[in-house]
Design a protein around this nucleic acid. Structure first.
Length: 259
DNA sequence: CCAATTTGACCGCG
DNA sequence: CGCGGTCAAATTGG
């Protein structure tokens, strides 16, 4: 499995998790509409990103077969699709493993990951502050993923969310994992599935719990709350082969074999 | 009381 | 030296 496929796979998986999270959310909670919207957007973005990756990969392969001059063998991913930053003038962070910027009319808080804020700064040219987040599992699992959220325009409102690095943590995806191989329906019936619980991971005492809500200027922060899902069966949505493949991928993305 | 956020200090880089 | 990014002590609030 090449890196582009892997990338697409990761995106799709994340989209799957977001959709799943959306599905198991407590719809009776009044203040969850924002979160639902964010998650739905995340699903769309994951799908469109995966598509773009696959399309790019395809184009790239076509280029290579038609004309055997691979102009650029570096990863074609986000940087190629998103002309947000000038090429050849990369910042040190843009050069780092993974970098993805996204703009939307509302700030993205619920993207399916759990973040912890570690700073906020007034940026020179912008009249709005920039907020710095890192994965809540940074300490626990050395997950290096970070993101920055900044309002960049007032009317119409425009927010920029920039992601750095990729998630190496396992817990963030826990809500989307499912018991595999145990197809006994009794086992799920009436059982509760907690979003951040993972069947194969024990929680350490430093496992981040869920955060509080906070209002602050235009940068409003809201985090996910634990939600208990009832009567949800993964087999409804995924064939067992796919489920196995996904599990294999999650535990060792490099060894996954799809053709 | 505990954990997450806030916020000013600090630090490395250009 | 100024800027952006990060740290960590203080603060906040459930």
């Amino acid at each position: 499995m090449n890196s582009c496929q892997q990338k697409a796979m990761e995106k799709l998986l994340h989209g799957y998790r977001c959709a799943n999270q959306l599905l198991i959310m407590d719809h009776t909670e009044s203040d969850s509409s924002m979160e639902r919207e964010d998650l739905a957007k995340s699903v769309l973005h994951c799908l469109s990103d995966s598509l773009s990756i696959l399309i790019d990969t395809n184009d790239h392969q076509d280029d290579q077969s038609n004309n055997s001059s691979p102009q650029d063998s570096s990863p074609v991913l986000e940087s190629a699709r998103k002309p947000l930053h000038k090429r050849g003038r990369k910042t040190s962070m843009a050069e780092s493993s993974d970098y993805h910027r996204h703009e939307s009319s509302t700030p993205i808080y619920h993207d399916g990951f759990l973040w912890r804020k570690y700073g906020q700064k007034q940026i020179k040219e912008s009249e709005y502050q920039r907020s710095y987040y890192k994965c809540a599992y940074t300490k626990d699992q050395n997950c290096e993923a970070k993101k920055q959220v900044q309002k960049i325009q007032h009317n119409p409102p425009l927010y920029s969310t920039t992601y750095f690095g990729h998630h190496t943590c396992q817990l963030h995806q826990a809500y989307a994992t499912f018991p595999i191989g145990t197809s006994d329906p009794e086992e799920h019936e009436g059982s509760h599935m907690i979003r951040f619980g993972h069947p194969n991971t024990s929680f350490s005492s430093s496992t981040p719990s869920l955060c509080r809500h906070q209002n602050q200027d235009h940068i409003r922060d809201e985090y996910m709350k634990p939600v208990i899902a009832e009567e949800w069966s993964p087999s409804e949505w995924m064939s067992s082969e796919v489920a196995h493949a996904v599990e294999a991928f999650e535990f060792n993305p490099l060894y996954m074999d799809i053709s």
